[in-house]
Write a protein that binds this DNA or RNA. Structure first.
Length: 255
DNA sequence: AGGCATGTTACAGG
DNA sequence: ACCTGTAACATGCC
């Protein structure tokens, strides 16, 4: 899409978390996409003349490439280019697509307070210690996009398992060596997962697309009542609910 | 068969 | 101001 002009935006179903703006054609169809960037879990398409599409995939949003004009169940928006089309599909409608100019984008509630990217030097021990003095569990802290950008439910369980930190620990009770390990394994797990194309839990969602093979590397997520891969045969993985989200961990390995 | 869980976020209310 | 629970939705699994 980068460097190309979208010939037409066809809104198939505007109902997402927020309505898809109905002036996409008027505002963008003459303009070239100059750049495409990611920030946290957001995708940003940059157009000429200070126009930006801020996109979030929610739980089940995805894009597919199609050579033909086709219309499948849960399709929402079609970007038509000269020789192909890109279609946004979202089963649960938790994703969204918003149109902003530069200032609106930077001031938006979505990006304004967002924490550092986990794979940069900004996510370090000093930063962590200063911002973890809160009365919430370490699992909730890692999930907070304003603390660190981009971590989701699956990776938070995986990170704390590798770091040997109990997900129910209060974030303000962590020792520096524990903080160091959490940071180290955040970077390690993310890098590994990216290499393998991410994690696909329910592949029916993307049945005609490539799935994320990090699923095969998961050490705790989804392994309730199974034998812990670290302490081997001695303890079973437990599942608990924290802030409405499932967490998996080993009581023996994670203190 | 129906209740519950699923990769997220925003907001109401304590 | 901080924290938790819940709703938004469609689908698949016990």
């Amino acid at each position: 899409m980068r460097g190309q002009k979208t010939n037409e935006f066809k809104i198939i179903n505007n109902k997402l978390r927020y309505k898809i703006p109905n002036n996409l054609n008027k505002k963008l169809s003459k303009l070239i996409i100059t750049n495409i960037v990611r920030r946290g879990k957001y995708l940003i398409l940059e157009y000429e003349k200070s126009n930006f599409l801020l996109i979030h995939l929610g739980m089940t949003g995805f894009f597919r490439l199609s050579k033909f004009a086709e219309n499948k169940k849960h399709d929402h928006l079609l970007f038509r280019y000269k020789n192909f089309q890109i279609i946004y599909n979202d089963i649960r409608k938790f994703g969204f697509i918003k149109l902003y100019n530069q200032k609106e984008l930077n001031d938006s509630k979505h990006l304004k307070e967002m924490g550092p990217e986990p794979l940069t030097k900004d996510f370090n021990e000093t930063y962590f210690s200063n911002f973890s003095k809160r009365n919430i569990s370490i699992k909730s802290l890692l999930m907070d996009q304003n603390f660190v950008a981009g971590l989701g439910n699956i990776y938070c369980s995986e990170i704390l398992f590798e770091a040997s930190v109990n997900p129910t620990r209060q974030s303000n009770s962590l020792r520096i060596d524990e903080i160091s390990k959490i940071i180290k394994y955040t970077k390690k797990i993310l890098n590994e997962a990216i290499k393998l194309g991410g994690t696909t839990i329910k592949n029916f969602i993307v049945s005609d697309l490539k799935i994320g093979y990090f699923k095969n590397q998961l050490k705790v997520y989804g392994r309730e009542n199974k034998i812990c891969k670290k302490c081997q045969k001695q303890h079973f993985i437990e599942k608990i609910i924290q802030n409405g989200r499932s967490t998996f961990f080993c009581k023996r390995c994670q203190l």
